[in-house]
Amino acid sequence: MDKPRVAFFDFASCEGCQLQVINLEEDLLQVVGAVEVVSFREAMKGHSDDYDIAFVEGSITRHSDEERLEGIRRCAKVLVALGSCAALGGINCLKNFHDQEYVKKLVYGDKALLYETYPARPLKAVVPVDFEIPGCPINRNEFAMVVKAFLLGKKPEIPNFPVCVECKMAENICVFEKGMTCMGPVTRAGCGACCVTEGSFCWGCRGLVDDPNADSQRDVLATHGLSVQDVLGKFRLYTGFSEVAK
């Protein structure tokens, strides 16, 4: 089998997910050995439009993005959303809850007229997406797992259970016991509950599980002292594009 040709692209994002790929260290060499990287702005100079797998980072925030993304979709056999901006809309969607003219002024000041913007959205709102690797940033091991699955011709599997599972496996003490609140019960696992393990709580960066019980999660947060506005804020931080955050 010929090595699959792989390309990386970015839209509105901090490029942190691409950085995670570069940070794969020894695994990166193996990935690079197993595939042929033909385009990766953050790590190399050349570019080619002949690729099999496109990893696309970032959310779509303006009309001109759509054309570029459609072009990538036409070239790629497999299109993978890399990270929460691309997969969920992510943190960029925070601006969707404000007037678009207002946010433009806030960011670009008197040059606002020169820029176009519209409410941020995930890739799948514009083109069909074959696979999503959520996370802000992505988990490197999960990225490697997805690459391996493609090489084996398998469909990659990422967890569809909440962060609480990995949190219990890590033997963390639930942050609700310590007076904090947490999005773990509705957030897709796969990160090993790293934020709780490191002393924080889950912010919800990997997005929601397939069938989240948002109502119950709202109740739990309210019982632990959050106002309606704060609860909404928790859901909007990363999953502002989803129905539950409306």
Binding site: F161, P162, K168, G184, P185, S216
Partner: peptide, 13 residues
């Protein structure tokens, strides 16, 4: 079960 978060905590502990 209407309030169940399907978090599996009851099983794991």
């Amino acid at each position: 079960a209407s309030k169940c978060l399907s978090c599996g905590t009851c099983n794991l502990v």
